[in-house]
Simulated scan of single mutants.
Amino acid sequence: MQLVIISGRSGSGKSIALQALEDLGYYAIDNLPAMLLAPLIDQLEVGSPHRRRIAVSIDARNLPDALERFPELLEGLTQRGLDAQVVYLTADSKILLERYSATRRRHPLTRESQMTLAEAIESEQHFLAPIRHTADLVIDTSNLSVHDLRGRISEQVARHTEKQLTLTFESFGFKRGVPLDADMVFDVRCLPNPYWDPQLRSSTGQDADVIAFLENYSDVQAMYDDIRQWLERWLPAHLASNRSYLTVAIGCTGGQHRSVYLIERLAIHFATQFPSVRLRHRELSIQKAMGEEVHAAS
């Protein structure tokens, strides 16, 4: 039996993720008290043995004691041989504040307390820390659309195979901050920057002219070799420690040229060694989405 536990900060998209799994055939339960995890599995194994894929959401609406005991409860399930994944959704606090302000919904922690919305958003991280620390996969939804999040859940969670490492390579720009879901971060801002060539400014690290520019510099090749060799040395250790997901992020200033080029090369290289490699360009996706919005508005 496969169990997917969706958790995370309120406003980060937990309902969307759960609905995506339900649409993919999972038996979905929203806002399950954590203490009922084991009884739920017991009941399904006896009364509904045909249900092999279960998805539940557990969030800050749980009792504090139940959240604190979550790692212990999860360990009990895995010892029974259950294939359990914990997926934690998060987003930048400012983004969450904007989402709540736009929808005018009340945050769960403000309903029975005198907290302001901003205080509730920050306090929730503390309450959910026991779940966050056990998460197999963290997804930063700050810049994801509903469609993007549903795609990530379908691609990374629903298609995940037990005992297989899903390796994600992500490019980003430091000007927008480090991705919240990155496990390893490499900074390549020290490399020659194609941005300062007016003819290359609008191109990306996927384009032949930028690739040719970067490959003229030995430092770029040296950086690639160092990152590749470091990953080749340590990825097997992460796989041996039963990691299900790993996100390697490379950042440059704008996330358009240098990081894109290096991520593309690394993804191609490691796809020959790992059966499940994903490629993501954060800033290019944001630019594409903004372009589509402008086009639709016009």
Rank of each mutant, 00 (worst) to 15 (best):
P108M: 09
L37R: 07
Y217M: 01
R176M: 13
P198F: 06
P130W: 09
R243D: 04
R233L: 14
G254S: 04
I131G: 00
I227V: 15
V260S: 01
V185R: 12
H50M: 02
T166Y: 07
G11E: 05
D226S: 15
F186G: 03
L74I: 03
R152V: 15
E293N: 07
L73K: 10
V210S: 02
D136L: 10
I41C: 06
L191Q: 00
D187W: 00
L262V: 12
R51A: 00
A212R: 15
L235R: 09
Y224L: 15
F186T: 01
Q229C: 05
E122D: 11
P192H: 06
H107Y: 10
Y195V: 00
A249P: 11
A297K: 11
I227M: 04
G13S: 14
R61I: 02
T204G: 01
V146F: 09
D207K: 14
A222H: 11
M115P: 05
A208Y: 05
S93M: 07
R52E: 13
G47A: 10
G254E: 05
L67T: 06
I5W: 08
A102W: 12
A267C: 06
Q287C: 11
V185N: 05
R105Y: 05
D148H: 14
L44G: 08
P194T: 09
R9D: 02
F274I: 15
I29Q: 02
G205P: 11
S154H: 15
S15A: 14
I41T: 03
A158N: 15
L67Y: 09
E45A: 11
C252S: 14
L32S: 04
E283A: 01
V146C: 09
S145K: 07
V220M: 01
R80F: 04
N31S: 07
L67E: 05
C252V: 12
S7C: 15
Q287G: 00
L235A: 08
E155D: 15
S7F: 11
A38V: 04
A237P: 00
S202N: 11
M223H: 01
F274G: 06
R53A: 05
F270E: 10
D207C: 09
I268G: 01
A240Y: 08
N143E: 13
C252K: 09
S123M: 07
E72R: 15
